[in-house]
Design a protein around this nucleic acid. Structure first.
Length: 195
DNA sequence: AACAACCTCAACCGCATCAGA
DNA sequence: GTCTGATGCGGTTGAGGTTGT
């Protein structure tokens, strides 16, 4: 694609965004969903399937944009959604997958049945990122003081905490299944080969 | 009791990519 | 090959709840 094409595309996208923004200002509902909206959306999806979100929004008589309907369905209304209480095993899985994949939340979520990318992203940002920071701080602290002949009690305790963190990661799960990326498309084939 | 600070999570936004005409 | 609308993704925001002072 030439630079000119890319500029044209950009302009179109901006125009589209402006239109969407105007729509939003004029008529589209925003903010928290009501039980009534949820029900309407679920009914329409049951009939027409979870695709053509703009049409679904219109058919349901919701003053919502398609994007909003899609998000609501995927993160809240979809069947088999697990809510709350991420288990230790799930947390461990998230930590490992994040180490491997980075912030590719949808891929990570794909390995955690019933969990959404949004939920995992939120959980990471509110719980795990802090935990990781604390963990790495402890590690660097110990490294700094490695010259000391004797470890003081507190340092030992910190090491124990660190070991607890590591050992809590030794929960059981199907590694082969977890790290089988063969169905994720060509961009992750390298990972399958690598593993 | 009142207020501020902090935390959580649902929802929105902007952009990239896909798919069909 | 190009255009355009639809979809998917990750980052960000903000309302509401909780905790601390």
């Amino acid at each position: 694609m030439t630079e000119e094409d890319s500029v044209k595309r950009k302009v179109k996208q901006v125009e589209g965004d402006i239109n969407e923004a105007e729509n939003v200002r004029n008529r589209v509902n925003k903010g928290a969903w009501t039980a009534e909206e949820d029900q309407k959306l679920a009914e329409v999806i049951a009939i027409h399937g979870a695709k053509r979100w703009k049409t679904i929004a219109a058919k349901a008589g919701l003053n919502r944009c398609g994007k909003s309907c899609r998000l609501r369905w995927l993160n809240y209304l979809r069947p088999n959604i697990k809510r709350g209480n991420i288990s230790d095993q799930e947390e461990d899985l998230i930590l490992r997958l994040h180490k491997l994949l980075g912030n590719r939340w949808s891929l990570i979520a794909g390995r955690l049945p019933g969990r959404t990318d949004n939920e995992i992203k939120n959980y990471w940002n509110s719980h795990l990122s802090k935990k990781m920071n604390q963990h790495s701080e402890k590690e660097s602290d110990i490294l700094k003081r490695k010259g000391c002949k004797r470890k003081v009690d507190t340092e030992l305790r910190e090491e124990e905490t660190s070991q607890e963190f590591e050992s809590s990661s030794n929960l059981e799960f199907d590694v082969d299944n977890l790290f089988d990326f063969s169905n994720e498309g060509p961009d992750l084939e390298w990972m399958s080969k690598f593993l």
